[in-house]
Design a protein around this nucleic acid. Sequence first.
DNA 1: CCCTATAGGCGTACGGCATACGCTTACGAT
DNA 2: ATCGTAAGCGTATGCCGTACGCCTATAGGG
Lengths: 207, 207
Amino acid sequence: MPRPRSLTSDQLATAALAVIDRDGLAGLSMRAVAQEIGMSTMGLYRYVDDRGELEQLVIDRVLDTVDTMPPDKGRPWYERIEIMVERLRHVVSSHPWLVPLIIAHRHRSVAIMRWSEPLAAILAEAGLDGRERVIALRSLLAYVVGAIQLEQLGPLAGAGTQVIADRAELPYLSETARHAHDVTTDEEFRGGLALLLRGIGGSTDAR
Amino acid sequence: MPRPRSLTSDQLATAALAVIDRDGLAGLSMRAVAQEIGMSTMGLYRYVDDRGELEQLVIDRVLDTVDTMPPDKGRPWYERIEIMVERLRHVVSSHPWLVPLIIAHRHRSVAIMRWSEPLAAILAEAGLDGRERVIALRSLLAYVVGAIQLEQLGPLAGAGTQVIADRAELPYLSETARHAHDVTTDEEFRGGLALLLRGIGGSTDAR
DNA sequence: CCCTATAGGCGTACGGCATACGCTTACGAT
DNA sequence: ATCGTAAGCGTATGCCGTACGCCTATAGGG
């Protein structure tokens, strides 16, 4: 019988995401989001307990757009894992500002679990036992999380790499850096993933 | 001829680190650090341009304690890489609060470059060409960065994993989670690293 | 059609933050 | 003894999240 809500959680998340995409993570504040949807600052607190909950809303909203359909079973297991991983990377990379937010709230996100489910299934099919599966799954997650951040923070082809290339007192590192411009962002990401998958494959093929 | 400074940068970094270790990252503020060293807040600005520079000071101070001596050349290349990686993990894990800080400022740290130098050398010795070396180095960095965060944020043996294990609608994932308590933090980290190293080894051995 | 209980939405205020600016003061060189 | 320089500090500004209390729109019951 009381007054009905005039907003959905989704509208709230959308507004907050709009603020982030426009002004960056530093621009995200309760005041900014309130202004975005034309409500008073304190009005938001009828929908969320605190800023953290608003952030959680945003990352759930984004991660929910990741396709969690198991890939075609005709493909080999490692290709299927690559497909799953690329789907996540694609969604996250389209909102670079909120990478730190996703990292911080990842473990409370149901969406990331739904994404992990087919991954666990594929690893099981590949013949990994329970313990191997735990380790493989966590390493994949670790690699994805780390690689996305590296990519976001300092692209391999960027200025930072050039600085390294010019450091004479670090001969091996700078020599390596000089090869970096040959490697695109996609090649880097897929290359590293391929290394990890080859390692995981060793657990099954070598038996 | 003017009045001399009464503080070194190192004292400043030490004070800030003490604040973080005591009160967490949230407790780090210019006011708190000023109080820690018995100076006024604005006095700090004679030493750093802004808060970010203070943070950089702290992480450099910590990362400088990582041993960058190349490991004994008698050991196989993959063991030497593991030694280098474990050294970094050990230092970072002893200051868990500042993991996010290290992530954010990592690319501006000279210490991390000095740590990468022997890594690049070992990979070269292992027979990887320039392009392979770029990818291997970046994947190792990605894995380390990601794994340390995962470890810090939600230990495999923790409550979060139990929650997953109880989710009936995610059969494969929860079945996998039920094996997690068998895997210690060290086993998890080394296991994932071993997978990656095996993949890297495939670039050289298989030739 | 009106009444009323309920929850929605808002304004104000507080304590904390980083930091710009300008003053005072200690000090080394002369 | 004096003086130029930079050290260190006090104040003030404009952000931030959010606690608290008020007013009011609304749906259901009469």
